[in-house]
């Protein structure tokens, strides 16, 4: 409990900044929607004239961006990127920082097992990403609702947020397992964000080229895409299963490898 509280406290500031960032991201996106919607231009016609690859790179895809929820669907990928970068970095640094700051010679000579330390740290990281997710959810419902002209938005946003949370968890344990496995754990955070960017690039590549669609299992960004889960689409069982298995395996790896490894003192 003491380690958990200590971690919550030491990540409080960073969580507040990320939350503000998340809110501003949603707000600025929806303000842009408002100016587009009020300009009276038929946006869909304009987009229809653009090449498909360009739409794919911009993440616009098949959304009806003349509606508030459609526009939000477009915005979602950026929220997802932010939330997963936060999760990956948090997962890696919460484990690696004891060695980075040379505090491991303080913490690990206390009467606690390594498993207990990892449990406390992962629980703290879990609560951090949950809070960031809730901030995003509340900001999204509030701000999208404001521009939706009475359209019901909560349900569509909620389902994207559930998807986002699963991916946050996944990237958190990707980060933590890298920090647990690597001897030089300081580099785990940059490695985890590297993995994240790589999988994101793969997901964009799949949008550009339908021939490589089978690669979608390799990139979590394809698991719960807004365009698939919103508007009554829901989750695909295979991706939920795949995420759960990956999260379980990587969590286990975090515990096992950290327990066996020499601390970098």
């Amino acid at each position: 409990m003491n380690i958990f509280l200590k971690e919550m406290k030491s990540h409080r500031k960073s969580l507040i900044f990320w939350s503000i960032g998340m809110f501003l991201m949603v707000a600025s996106g929806m303000v842009k929607y408002e100016s587009l919607a009020s300009s009276g231009q038929p946006m869909n016609d304009m987009l229809a004239g653009m090449p498909k690859s360009m739409l794919a790179v911009l993440g616009i895809g098949d959304f009806d961006i003349s509606t508030a929820t459609g526009y939000y669907g477009l915005l979602f990928i950026y929220l997802l990127l932010m939330a997963t970068i936060h999760a990956a970095m948090l997962g890696a640094t919460i484990i690696a920082k004891e060695e980075r700051d040379k505090t491991s010679e303080f913490l690990f000579v206390k009467p606690v097992s390594r498993n207990r330390v990892i449990t406390a740290k992962l629980l703290s990281a879990f609560l951090n990403i949950l809070l960031l997710n809730l901030v995003t959810f509340v900001s999204s419902v509030g701000l999208v609702g404001k521009f939706s002209n009475g359209e019901v938005v909560t349900k569509d946003i909620a389902i994207t947020m559930v998807g986002m949370f699963i991916l946050q968890l996944l990237f958190m344990v990707i980060g933590s397992s890298l920090a647990a496995i690597k001897k030089k754990s300081e580099s785990a955070a940059s490695l985890a964000t590297g993995v994240l960017l790589l999988t994101y690039v793969i997901s964009v590549a799949i949008d550009l080229n339908e021939n490589i669609e089978s690669l979608k299992y390799l990139t979590p960004f394809k698991y719960f895409e807004a365009k698939n889960v919103m508007f009554g689409g829901g989750f695909e069982f295979i991706f939920v299963l795949l995420s759960c298995v990956l999260i379980a395996v990587l969590t286990l790896a975090t515990f096992l490898f950290y327990k066996k490894r020499d601390l970098n003192v």
């Binding site: 200590k6 505090t103 000579v109 206390k110 009467p111 606690v112 097992s113």
Partner: peptide, 21 residues
Amino acid sequence: FAPEIKKEIGYLPSEVFYYDN
């Protein structure tokens, strides 16, 4: 028995670094 033993150990490392702030 590492965690159990450490209840009764006091350790002073050669270089002390502590949590900032």
